[in-house]
């Protein structure tokens, strides 16, 4: 057993932070939080605080990256040095480069990039406080920021993870479960046709457990989707 690992993850049907297995942490989304960005969003998800900004479509620098038939999408995931317990050294590392990449691939399928040839749409995701699930929080924030910037898109993209702790499939891991649990499965979704745009997994699941976790994550995404829409309605003065 690793140092700090809890003996049990679920006691009397409740998880260590008091949630039920299929319960999500509290999530708050706010659109339009930055002045300079074309679109932005702040997502507070349990102990996570993530801000996303969208700039564009705008001219591409350096110019040779531009594509003549569509816009390029560039995503940058970055953690503030003070967002984690052991200070993170500033600048990109292998983990953030990978997350930036899967974030881009999670969002690209919904964006009508063909409308803006030779431009770039830049998305910046900053993790200000981390508590497991920052990539899902980031994708959730980024897709609200894209809509807030007026980028034409097929749908919003919510994201949510499911996992396994103490042998049980649970929704939305928090840090202790993430560090010492048995599996983690982040998923992003295009809700209107249930197409999955992000799927990563580490740990171990039986086939049956995986199916249950995937369904749980998809349910989580649908809840996030409603909150995303609510945040945009509020920003633009709808009901």
């Amino acid at each position: 057993m690793k140092i700090g690992q809890p003996e049990k993850f679920i006691i009397d049907g409740k998880r260590l932070d008091g949630r039920k297995p299929d319960e999500m942490r509290e999530v708050k989304i706010q659109a339009g939080v930055l002045k300079r960005a074309d679109g932005s969003a702040l997502v507070e998800w349990g102990g996570n605080k993530v801000i996303a900004a969208c700039y564009g479509p705008r001219e591409v620098h350096p110019r040779h990256l531009a594509k003549s038939d569509k816009a390029i999408l560039r995503c940058t995931y970055n953690m503030a040095p003070f967002s984690v317990s052991d200070r993170k050294r500033p600048g990109p590392d292998r983990r953030s480069v990978e997350i930036s990449k899967v974030t881009r691939l999670a969002l690209e399928p919904v964006i009508f990039t063909n409308l803006y040839p030779r431009t770039t749409i830049d998305v910046f995701i900053e993790v200000l406080q981390a508590n497991a699930g920052t990539r899902c929080t980031g994708i959730t924030a980024a897709s609200v920021a894209l809509a807030d910037a007026g980028i034409p898109m097929r749908d919003l993209v919510p994201a949510c993870a499911a996992g396994k702790v103490g042998g049980e499939v649970v929704l939305d891991l928090f840090d202790i479960e993430d560090n010492y649990g048995e599996a983690d499965l982040p998923v992003a979704l295009i809700p209107k046709n249930n197409e999955i745009t992000l799927l990563q997994m580490d740990g171990n699941f039986t086939k049956k457990e995986f199916e249950k976790a995937l369904d749980l994550a998809i349910q989580g995404c649908m809840k996030i989707y409603e909150l995303q829409k609510g945040a945009l309605r509020e920003r633009y003065g709808g009901e």
């Binding site: 097929r154 749908d155 919003l156 829409k229 945009l232 309605r233 003065g237 709808g238």
Partner: peptide, 9 residues
């Protein structure tokens, strides 16, 4: 006034 606000998707 009757124009409804819509969201992508």
């Amino acid at each position: 006034l009757s124009r409804r606000m819509v969201i992508p998707g």
